[in-house]
Computed example of a mutant assay.
Amino acid sequence: MRLTIAEDSVLLREGLVGIFTRFGFEVVAAVGSADELLHAVARDVPDVVVVDVRMPPNFRDEGLRAAIRLRADHPRLGLLVLSQVVEETAAGELLEAGTRGVGYLLKDRIGAIIPFVEAVRTVAGGGTVIDPDVVRQLLVHRRAHDPLDALSPREREVLALVAEGRSNSAIAQRLYVSEAAVAKHVTSVYTKLDLGQDADDHRRVLAALTFLRSR
């Protein structure tokens, strides 16, 4: 099994190389930055990548952003992300792209070498390994940032029908209300979802997409 490692700490990186070599992996590259990771995979695509979230130059979420890009370029590549904390936004983006062959583990909760190695094998084989704390925090983040929370029950009902592609007239017939009432609800939805003052057709599509993403 061919593996690429991306970790900025030299000691940890070399330690990972030693561990995986011992367990029969072929380490094709071991790099210290997100840019180096992207170049290494472009040169020689492995079976699986183990990547730290926070990497040079800014030590924010460069490694995770690189993983998202690799997932887009190489959908069958296994990706195991290691982190001290959960980066909710970028982690959500990675998992929304599909959970096949994806892992996200918190470094502090990796208690033994063999389960960690098995997690890498699972991801390389197309499985999913997500730390329970990561799942919990992502769910909390999603609930805390759900834009639909601002809508009334009737506005949610109207938006659901908008997302089905129905016109104001069709929505009015479905809900047994006037078209003017539907138009008022739709305008309120635009305002609460902060969709600006673009053409109504454009805002209608954006509102529908917001509804579908929140389901």
Rank of each mutant, 00 (worst) to 15 (best):
R2K: 11
R2D: 11
R2P: 00
R2E: 12
T4S: 15
L11N: 04
L11T: 02
L12H: 02
G15L: 13
F23C: 06
F23T: 00
G24M: 06
E26L: 03
E26M: 13
S33Y: 10
S33T: 10
A34V: 05
D35K: 00
V45K: 13
V50K: 09
V51Y: 06
F59V: 00
E62G: 05
G63H: 06
R69S: 08
A72C: 01
L80D: 07
L82F: 13
Q84T: 02
E87K: 00
E87V: 03
E88A: 13
T89A: 13
A91T: 12
E93G: 08
L94H: 14
L95F: 15
T99D: 15
L106N: 15
R109G: 10
I110T: 09
G111E: 12
F116R: 04
F116K: 06
R121C: 15
I130V: 15
R136S: 14
P147F: 08
L151N: 00
R154D: 09
E155N: 01
L161P: 00
S167Y: 08
A180Y: 04
H185Q: 10
V186F: 03
T191H: 12
T191K: 05
T191R: 11
K192G: 02
L195D: 07
G196F: 06
D200T: 05
D201V: 11
R203H: 07
R204C: 14
R204F: 11
V205F: 10
V205R: 11
T210Q: 08
R213W: 07
R213A: 15
